[in-house]
Computed example of a mutant assay.
Amino acid sequence: MTTRVRDERGSAAIEAAIGLPAFVLFVGMIIAGGRLAIAHQSVQAAAADAARAASISRDARTADATARREAEASLANQQIDCRSTRVSVSTAAFRVPVGQAADVTVTVSCRLDLSDLSVPGIPGSRVVRATMSSPIDTWRERAARGFRIPDAYADVWGQS
Rank of each mutant, 00 (worst) to 15 (best):
A54D: 00
S160F: 15
G33K: 03
D81T: 15
G19W: 14
T105A: 13
A46C: 07
S84M: 12
Q159S: 14
I38H: 03
A93W: 06
T2E: 01
G146N: 12
T105K: 14
R142E: 09
L36N: 01
Q159D: 12
I38Q: 05
V96W: 08
T91K: 12
R86E: 01
V128C: 01
V87S: 02
Q78V: 12
S74V: 10
A53N: 02
T3E: 02
L25E: 00
Q159E: 13
E8H: 11
F94V: 10
D103S: 12
T62P: 01
T2M: 10
V98T: 10
V128A: 04
G28H: 04
N77Q: 10
Y153V: 04
G19K: 07
A130F: 15
T85G: 09
L112R: 03
A54P: 05
R126T: 11
G124T: 03
G34N: 03
T62Y: 03
W157H: 11
A71F: 02
R35K: 11
A50G: 07
F94L: 10
A22L: 15
L114Q: 00
W139N: 15
T2P: 09
D64N: 06
W139E: 15
T91M: 09
V128M: 03
A102K: 13
A63Y: 03
I38C: 05
R111I: 10
P135F: 04
F26E: 00
S42K: 12
E141G: 14
A51H: 04
A51M: 05
A73T: 03
S90E: 07
A47D: 00
T91D: 02
V96I: 13
R6I: 13
V5K: 12
D64T: 12
A39H: 04
G158Q: 06
T107P: 02
A143F: 15
F147G: 15
V98L: 10
P135S: 11
S109F: 00
S115N: 00
E141R: 14
T62M: 05
V24F: 07
A50C: 09
